[in-house]
Amino acid sequence: MDPFVVLVLCLSCLLLLSIWRQSSGRGKLPPGPTPLPVIGNILQIDIKDVSKSLTNLSKIYGPVFTLYFGLERMVVLHGYEVVKEALIDLGEEFSGRGHFPLAERANRGFGIVFSNGKRWKEIRRFSLMTLRNFGMGKRSIEDRVQEEARCLVEELRKTKASPCDPTFILGCAPCNVICSIIFQKRFDYKDQQFLNLMEKLNENIRIVSTPWIQICNNFPTIIDYFPGTHNKLLKNLAFMESDILEKVKEHQESMDINNPRDFIDCFLIKMEKEKQNQQSEFTIENLVITAADLLGAGTETTSTTLRYALLLLLKHPEVTAKVQEEIERVIGRNRSPCMQDRGHMPYTDAVVHEVQRYIDLIPTSLPHAVTCDVKFRNYLIPKGTTILTSLTSVLHDNKEFPNPEMFDPRHFLDEGGNFKKSNYFMPFSAGKRICVGEGLARMELFLFLTFILQNFNLKSLIDPKDLDTTPVVNGFASVPPFYQLCFIPV
């Protein structure tokens, strides 16, 4: 058959498939802009700032609406009420993970971030239990974070109060905490193996944040037939998995079943207990991918939040002064901060919360999916439909947070200066898919920041009023603009 005829037939089939998918069930789905064949609503979305586009569309179609990214149908949730109703009140029905062709290629359905069903539930339950087990290797997770915080302070001392970009050092600290939990080992910041790991993690975040990856996920045929950065992403992930597998083999040879040292040991012990169960989800494949998931999810998000926190503290020296006064009063100079201190430091706690609220790190979270046909607000959402959640619409709700575009710790303080919780605080998402490392991340943010401010004054290279804190939105995360500062020993 003539190649031209084959091409026309293929394009015609794709067009018909697109029209059929977009028209099927439209009477039951939430409203939304009319999609174009094949490309859907992509032309109506700013790929570099999806969150802003969703906010604009919500003003037209309401808090629940339908979009098509290519052939992929998505239902968008915008605003606290619908997000709570879906992710919390109907948590089980909305607990699936959205379709990610690239991740599915890399992870093969294993791990904790992109798995679904029984596998996801069992691996998540085990990971939560293990991360909360403060007795691994007779050292609590808090001990590990405190140790890394001391190392971080010593690295900052080496800058000798000269101007520096904190990106690298602030990236090393949370990565080392995860390494300590998974591998029972922290690395020197100049260790070549550690630097290679950091390089792969950072490069992957840069790649994932590009519009090209959005295109690959919406048109998965590209993955096999086109060159691009997605190939580098898959190569980096394969490198990390190979490295983790080597460490798993080392653990198998040296493990003491009665004295687990780290996450890998705990997983291997669980595998041993379930070795007679042919349906067990505790396999080497799941261990390797879960460890890679924890490394990827637990490094860049925390380091970016820390980097943004220091920029905001530079911009608002009056806030920094209040935090340091609270540190001096509650902790002093002669001991290290600990998590028990947080309950006695409402202002510092409010500042950490406000940093996370203000920066809105992951504006749309990772997409969910419905696990069955769901009736939601008089609409029928078919099983498997991807759910896109606007966390921006919750964290920047102007009824809950007056002047949401302003950095103001009073958003989390009552009139008496006591810490005030808010149900709208969802930087880790909400419901059954809430970030498994939430507790660890909150511990790291509090301890790293208090250790830094206990030991250093922060000095800006320019007038604080002239510092730009506008986030650089890159399609996946909101990151701070480049800046330098000086760490002046107190």
Rank of each mutant, 00 (worst) to 15 (best):
C151I: 12
S95W: 04
A103M: 14
S209M: 13
S115G: 08
G417E: 08
C151P: 02
L57T: 05
E85Q: 09
M339A: 09
V319Q: 05
L156V: 07
F428E: 01
Q214P: 08
C10R: 00
K421S: 15
Q193R: 12
I222G: 05
K28M: 12
E328Q: 12
S162H: 13
F187P: 02
M426A: 04
I434P: 03
F425G: 03
I207Y: 02
E285Q: 11
L131D: 02
K200C: 12
D49S: 09
K249F: 09
K273V: 09
D414Y: 07
G137I: 11
Q324T: 10
I223V: 08
T364F: 14
L391S: 01
V330H: 10
S115I: 03
I207T: 07
L15S: 12
Q278P: 15
R119N: 09
V323T: 06
S180P: 02
A149L: 03
L458S: 03
K275M: 09
K432D: 14
L461V: 14
V6Q: 06
V288T: 09
K190V: 10
H368V: 03
E300G: 12
P166M: 03
H353P: 00
N217Y: 13
F419S: 04
L311M: 11
F114I: 06
D89M: 07
Q146N: 10
R21H: 15
M406S: 11
L87K: 02
P37W: 05
N474I: 07
D466N: 15
C338D: 09
A292S: 15
K432W: 09
L268K: 01
L197V: 07
L15R: 03
N204G: 07
D243R: 14
M345V: 03
F4M: 08
G135R: 15
R125S: 12
K247E: 11
L458T: 03
K432T: 13
L57P: 01
E142L: 06
R261G: 05
L445V: 10
K383L: 05
D293V: 03
K249W: 09
L233R: 04
E241H: 12
S127P: 01
N418R: 12
G296W: 15
C266E: 15
E285R: 14
R442D: 09
F263H: 01
R124P: 02
